[in-house]
Amino acid sequence: METTTNLVVNRQVRKRSNLWERIRYHKYFYIMLIPIIAWYIIFCYVPMYGVTLAFKTYDFSKGITGSPWTGIQNFKDILNDSQYLSSLKNTIIISFGKLIFHFPIPILLAFLINQIAGQKMKKLYQTVFTFPHFISWVVLGGIITNILGSQGVYNQIIGLFGFESSSLLTSPSFFRPLIYITHIWKEIGWDSIIYLAALAGINPELYEAADMDGASRLQKIGHVSWPGIKSTVAILFILTVGLMMNVSFDQIYNLYSSPVYDVGDTVDTYILRTTMSVGSNFGLLAAAGLIKSVASMFLLLFANFVVKKFGEQGLF
């Protein structure tokens, strides 16, 4: 028994020594991680004490730590708020819509760009598709308003043909498709970069072997390209699902208005609007944000579980 115990202890000691040896060997890489770790600690973990506000009634004179506890009353109140429930429903619908309509398109775009023979043309198409990502939603929102607003280009054109003008931006039936289309147009090129990088890492000899076997382009995509990037797709799918509740705040805030609150108001915009109102209950809004965060955690765990069920390695 003592011999077995000594072996276990010695093995643990060797593991710890090997770990510190690897850390010392790669010390410069760990040094480069220090700013990132510090950023997460300062801006992500330290402020987490503010979560306690969800269980309190905030008192400006006492601060967060001195405010009185109310238990789960804030959660009961927020779940009885019809506007919050509507914003939660819209958040889920818009998030799933973006996942369904947007997520596969950058993958297809990466496959298409990868099929282009010339490197210069590849870079040209990649630049053209990536450029919209760098346009601010404030600027893009102004452009879209000038095109689709009540006095925009669209209404001026249809007015020339005798049609009645209408503001598409205030149309509840058109708002969500507008969100999907503009998001795809703006982010498709940027999101395809990581897939292009994964495709570039595939061994060219695999394509040469496929050519010798007489494989078509579609067959090479199905049997060489897709297996080479599916692990990357799986990881990005998990991250995308985990961030689903964080719908693009900038996009919606710059495009929506009161006529489309019923279909476009999300949790983030609801919290902002309510916070800006006089006499806001910050404990109530903290509870709303905490519900969203907990939902995001469960979505992340679910996506990781699904990816593992399909035989891929998840995040954990």
Rank of each mutant, 00 (worst) to 15 (best):
P177K: 10
P177H: 12
I194M: 11
W190Y: 12
A197G: 10
T182K: 06
D191M: 12
Y207A: 01
T170H: 14
S166D: 14
D191E: 13
F174C: 12
K186C: 03
D191T: 09
S166R: 15
P177E: 10
Y180H: 03
S167I: 14
G189M: 05
I194S: 08
W190G: 01
L199Q: 02
A198S: 13
K186S: 04
A197M: 12
Y195V: 11
G189S: 03
I181L: 12
R176W: 06
P177S: 11
I188C: 01
A200R: 09
L168V: 15
K186E: 02
A200C: 10
S173H: 11
H183F: 09
I194T: 09
L178T: 11
I184V: 04
W185Q: 00
Y207P: 01
A197F: 13
I188P: 00
I194Y: 10
L199V: 08
F174I: 15
Y195F: 14
P177F: 14
A200I: 10
R176D: 00
S171E: 13
N203D: 11
S173C: 07
L178P: 04
A198L: 13
I184T: 00
L196C: 09
N203A: 06
A198E: 08
G189H: 01
A209V: 10
N203C: 05
D191S: 14
D191K: 07
Y180M: 06
E164P: 06
I202G: 02
D191N: 13
I181F: 10
A198V: 11
E187C: 06
I193G: 02
L196N: 07
P204G: 05
E208S: 12
P204Q: 06
G189P: 00
I188D: 00
S165L: 14
E208R: 11
E187M: 06
S173Y: 13
F174W: 15
P204F: 07
I193C: 05
A198H: 13
Y207E: 00
S171P: 06
I193V: 13
T182D: 04
Y207M: 04
A210E: 05
G189W: 01
A197E: 12
I188R: 00
A197C: 09
P177V: 14
W190T: 03
T182A: 07
N203K: 04
P204M: 09
L196G: 07
G189T: 02
A209F: 09
A198Y: 11
E187L: 07
A200M: 12
K186W: 06
A197Q: 09
P172G: 07
S167R: 15
H183G: 04
W185I: 05
R176F: 08
G201L: 10
L196F: 08
A209K: 09
R176K: 13
I202D: 01
A198P: 07
I194F: 11
L206C: 01
S192D: 03
E208F: 09
K186T: 05
E187T: 03
A210V: 08
A200E: 08
K186V: 04
S167V: 14
L196Q: 08
F175L: 11
F175Q: 04
L206V: 03
F175G: 02
I179S: 01
E187I: 04
A210Q: 05
N203Y: 03
Y207V: 02
I193E: 02
